[in-house]
Design a protein around this nucleic acid. Structure first.
Length: 830
DNA sequence: CTCTCCCT
């Protein structure tokens, strides 16, 4: 089939965004009927085509109660644009570099103006804010929400995109005095969101950031003793929970984006339920003897799983708030599309030739698909007539350096179309302005964790169909600017067969850290009240792992070592590496390595065409004993370059410090930044990763100091202790080479290969350890280092304990199956 | 012979 053959669209199935809420609230619907005007009934009840429906009932503002829209459509249009920029949901606020940073805002507030105009300006600004807030769809539901929270311990709020729930609800509760003497915490899955929403809300409250309204995320906190409304990441609140198991500081906890079901959100939901049971009726007293009021919980979700949350919290009321979103026409393919890359090319041409101007966003599963689309569209464009060839194509994926990511925010040149090829990152984390067309392959890469193999797990990263809620979310990305269209490269029947929501993270990841946290909280991981239970096998596997790491004793009780491990912001095995670096006298080296290992930004960023040049440029860092020591070399070289280019005395954090910002970050240099940047560039290193590693290292050094570990202790040039130390924590991720050149993981005999990105891929040493086992096209070990096979004898793998691990649930019931010592961990298989 | 995304 030729590329210019258009994809046939299933006219009959063409439908509008999105779902019809079936939920009838306990208190009645807040903001109009359950089916607002901007939603059509599902396909079953109407077969209207795109055109007929679109022209009929759509208003840009969606909400039925919108007053501006009837009075003046133009005004409505303009206002909705403003709403998009200022207050839509957190993603808009957070991910656009142009959105106001806290700093900018301060500047603007204090802008020098003629004295006379100042008050007036302030007044009109306040008026703007007030009228803006009153126009948000959630405003009409304020009374109902406040009442519901006043009368119930727990309330679920089902709020659509653009309803204003995230910014407004905390303020409503605060303004009405529902927080009493306590604080309100609002959790977000992502750091940027917490920071930017806090900035916005503090402006709306008319106070400066860090006073009444603050935030707390890793590496950055801005709060004071006056702070009453605190935005934080869900991970941060879990951290607080470990120190304060009843969350005594708080009178209200709001879990936002609960539908995303992050591991930490799920941990919080279970814990909040327990806290409510214990704080109920004032039976619980705080540490200083005061009576603790009941903890109010508000769960905010954007999808239909609201009922699930309600059920979990004893059938609490669900309130529904409609959103503000432009209509999106949804086109399904008539026939299944077999080759999605080919399908994407065809739709791309189709849009270029048939559709009015507007930018395009394509959802692809991974980096290599994006690269191949970039290449093929470049080729295609050269063959198009010049009027159609005005296309600016851009990639967008997580590993892309930020300066390249930022390019998607620039408008395309006059007369050009922008087309962005993106992974899932464009689904929730980054909102691209100005998109009118979405092309949805219906695919994503999903990580799943296979516990089997007696505990040490196997990650799988495979292309999978998305869920209905993801499909709706992707389509919604076409409706930010105005009416849009979403082309789905799958049939309507395929859509109907998709699962409603993705599998919650807690059911598809390694639980070691989460289970350790539960143990610190004194919970029994086997009987904890999960909203969705992980498999018992997964829980037991983690208990076994924690036992092997000596975080738990044979009775399954938390050991002092385990408590120490939980205090590090690391997964338990890496915590153990850090702790054992004390005895091996190589903490300095280990912190460098662990910092780089755990930073989210990728240190090495390669695309197809630069891969070889980059590998060549980095050759000088390569250490013959593998990837961990190579990382150490990179880090040391980087620090040399930085100190060679540092002018003393200046400090870019000075600014932040005078502004009373608490940062855990390192004092960064203000010397010759450009030289450092150039060095990173010529060596194909991501400077952001190195900066992040510096910040992490500072945090880890503080942790070490607290735990009595001297982080300055270095092993010098003899790096053997470093490798042994890594083995102390990673011993379950070790493998020996077999005769055929592949490896067998020790204990479980899993066959694996060294990942091609590893420096050891050609060397193939006899015994290795690795950070991660990932199944993609094969079973690959990533982050690999050489060890001596004799070292393995000293690991717990080969020290069959006399006290068999009976990792009970709190020593009572649910005894754990024996681990698979018989399967090789006794050492007799080598 | 190659890496969805986020969090302490």
């Amino acid at each position: 089939m030729p590329e210019h053959q258009p994809v046939a669209w299933d006219k009959h199935s063409t439908q509008k965004m999105t779902y019809t809420p079936k939920i009838i609230t306990a208190n009645g619907v807040i903001n109009g009927p359950t089916t607002p005007l901007n939603r059509t009934p599902s396909r079953a009840s109407g077969s209207e085509t795109q055109g007929s429906r679109q022209n009929k009932s759509r208003s840009p503002n969606g909400s039925i109660n919108n007053k501006t829209q009837h009075a003046s459509p133009n005004l409505g249009q303009r206002r909705s644009r403003t709403a998009y920029m200022q207050s839509d949901e957190e993603d808009e606020l957070s991910s656009q570099p142009n959105s106001q940073s806290p700093k900018k805002e301060r500047k603007m507030n204090g802008a020098a103006l003629p004295n006379g105009g100042k008050d007036e300006l302030k007044r009109s600004k306040e008026e703007d804010i007030r009228s803006h807030r009153m126009q948000l769809p959630i405003y009409d539901g304020k009374g109902a929400i406040v009442n519901a929270v006043r009368e119930n311990d727990t309330v679920v709020v089902l709020g659509e995109t653009g309803s204003g729930k995230t910014t407004q609800l905390p303020q409503y509760l605060f303004d009405e005095g529902l927080a009493k003497d306590g604080m309100i915490a609002i959790t977000q899955p992502r750091r940027v969101a917490a920071v930017t929403i806090a900035a916005r809300v503090s402006v709306e409250q008319g106070t400066s950031l860090g006073e009444q309204v603050g935030y707390s995320v890793r590496f950055q906190e801005r709060t004071s003793r006056f702070t009453k409304i605190k935005f934080c990441t869900d991970g941060m609140l879990v951290r607080e929970l470990l120190l304060d198991p009843y969350l005594e500081k708080y009178s209200i906890v709001i879990i936002d984006e609960a539908h995303e079901r992050t591991l930490r959100t799920d941990m919080l939901l279970g814990s909040l339920k327990r806290i409510q049971q214990e704080r109920k009726a004032g039976e619980r007293r705080s540490k200083d003897g005061k009576k603790l009021d009941q903890l109010k919980v508000v769960i905010m979700s954007a999808t239909m799983d609201a009922e699930r949350f309600s059920k979990f919290f004893g059938g609490c009321p669900i309130l529904y708030v409609s959103g503000r979103q432009h209509p999106v026409a949804i086109m399904h393919a008539e026939e299944p599309v077999e080759d999605f890359i080919f399908g994407c090319k065809r739709v791309f041409l189709q849009i270029l030739t048939n559709e009015p101007p507007g930018d395009i966003l394509m959802f692809l599963p991974g980096q290599d698909d994006i690269e191949s689309m970039m290449k093929t569209t470049r080729d295609m464009i050269t063959q198009l007539p010049p009027n159609l060839a005005k296309v600016l194509s851009l990639p967008l994926y997580g590993a892309l350096p930020p300066e390249q990511q930022r390019k998607i925010f620039d408008p395309a040149p006059e007369g050009f179309r922008k087309v962005v090829f993106a992974t899932n990152i464009a689904e929730t984390s980054i909102t691209i302005p100005g998109i009118r067309y979405v092309v949805d392959t219906g695919l994503c890469k999903e990580r799943s964790y296979h516990t089997g193999h007696g505990g040490s797990g196997l990650d799988e990263l495979l292309i999978k169909p998305i869920s209905k809620s993801s499909a709706r979310q992707r389509a919604g990305r076409a409706g930010r600017l105005g009416a849009g269209t979403c082309f789905r490269l799958y049939t309507a029947d395929t859509y109907e067969a998709l699962p409603e929501a993705p599998i919650p993270e807690i059911q598809r990841c390694d639980l070691n850290a989460a289970i350790l946290d539960l143990k610190v909280l004194g919970e029994d991981p086997l009987t904890f009240d999960y909203i969705d239970r992980p498999l018992d096998d997964a829980i037991r596997a983690s208990l076994m792992t924690l036992y092997a790491l000596q975080a738990l004793n044979a009775q399954g009780h938390l050991t002092p070592l385990g408590r120490k491990m939980s205090s590090f912001p690391l997964e338990p095995s890496l915590s153990l590496v850090v702790i054992s670096s004390k005895a091996r006298a190589c903490t300095s080296e280990i912190l460098d390595i662990v910092s780089l290992l755990t930073c989210t930004a990728k240190l090495f960023v390669d695309t197809g065409d630069t891969r070889e040049v980059a590998a060549d440029a980095r050759k000088k860092f390569r250490h013959r004993d593998g990837d961990h020591l190579t990382l150490l070399n990179v880090f040391r070289s980087y620090e040399d370059v930085v100190s060679a280019n540092t002018s003393t005395g200046t400090n870019i954090n000075a600014d932040a410090r005078t502004a009373n910002v608490k940062t855990n970050g390192p004092s960064t240099y203000a010397g010759n930044r450009r030289a450092v940047r150039q060095w990173c560039f010529t060596h194909f290193l991501n400077e952001k990763a190195l900066n992040e590693a510096l910040t992490i290292r500072t945090q880890l050094r503080n942790n070490c100091e607290r735990e009595g570990i001297d982080w300055k202790v270095s092993c010098g040039d003899d790096l053997e202790p470093v490798l042994k130390c890594l083995l102390d924590g990673l011993f379950r991720k070790s493998a020996l080479k077999a005769a055929d050149g592949t490896y067998r993981q020790i204990g479980m005999q899993q066959v694996l290969k060294i990942h091609p990105s590893s420096s050891l891929v050609d060397r193939k040493p006899a015994a290795i350890i690795f950070d991660e086992l990932l199944v993609t096209t094969a079973v690959y070990a990533r982050g690999v280092s050489v060890i001596h096979s004799s070292w393995l004898v000293d690991t717990p793998l080969f020290n069959s304990k006399k006290d068999e691990p009976v990792t009970h649930a709190n020593g009572q019931k649910g005894a754990i199956r024996k681990n698979n010592h018989a399967n090789g961990t006794n050492g007799n298989t080598i």
